[in-house]
Amino acid sequence: MGTLTSLPVAKVRRAREGMRLRVNSSALTGGIILALILVGAAAAPALYPGDPLDMAASPFIWPGTDPAYPLGTDMLGRDIAAGILHGARVSLLIGLVATLVSIAIGVTFGALAGFYGGRIDWALMRATELVQTIPPFLFALAIVAILQPSVPTIVIAIGLTAWPSLARLVRAEVLRLRNSDFVQASISVGASHRRIILLDILPNTFAPVIVSASILIASAILTESSLAFLGLGDPNVASWGGMVGAGREVLRTDWYVATLPGLAIVAAVLGLNLLGDGLNDLLDVRR
């Protein structure tokens, strides 16, 4: 092994070059996957008008055997393609709104703790640690079980359990920015705390928050589908996880019923993760 390329330095350089190439391609790939899902979600009512939970044809039409039902039908004769497209609307909606709830809580906690420090910081960080200790999925499950499953309660449950990592991230950013020259300048000209936090500090935490947001949406979609899989989905809407759960009954004979909707979950989460990875490097966020 006498060649230059076997040296660790070359190894690191090659990895970095590889990474730069992959950055743009991963942001691009993720963006394309997401765009396709968004188009599918938007087209769902036009392509498949009516309730996707209604019986559309005879049960157990296998995928690819009837052109009218490209992905087949399940044990109740529901069109799987219609369920997946309508499910995309629900999954994306829940993922997005739950993440907005998480961002609202996490940014508020992080900004106040980082800016004021002292007792406020102590109290807010203890609360953050407490929520972080409770296994998030179990916590969300308990909240949904108690409030009864519906789209709003699922959003609240995921939003209430997913914010701690964001609060820590924002707090660290605020701590860093608080002592920077421009914030000190604002303080010295007598700007109000509110103005400093909202107009000086928070806009500068935008990049890491946006990167976290795409990862949070991905994990919210995973949580939502897991809840639905356990029977804690909104019973009135089609959900990817719920479709996988229902299909388990016929796993031995008609495995496509349970497996096909799962591919939609993988695609959505993969797209968001790739986008997050790509944005992370494009926006040059250090983590």
Partner: peptide, 14 residues
Amino acid sequence: LLFYATPVFWIGVV
């Protein structure tokens, strides 16, 4: 990357 995006329950089913 793929495993990171795959829901646990679906892996079990597959």
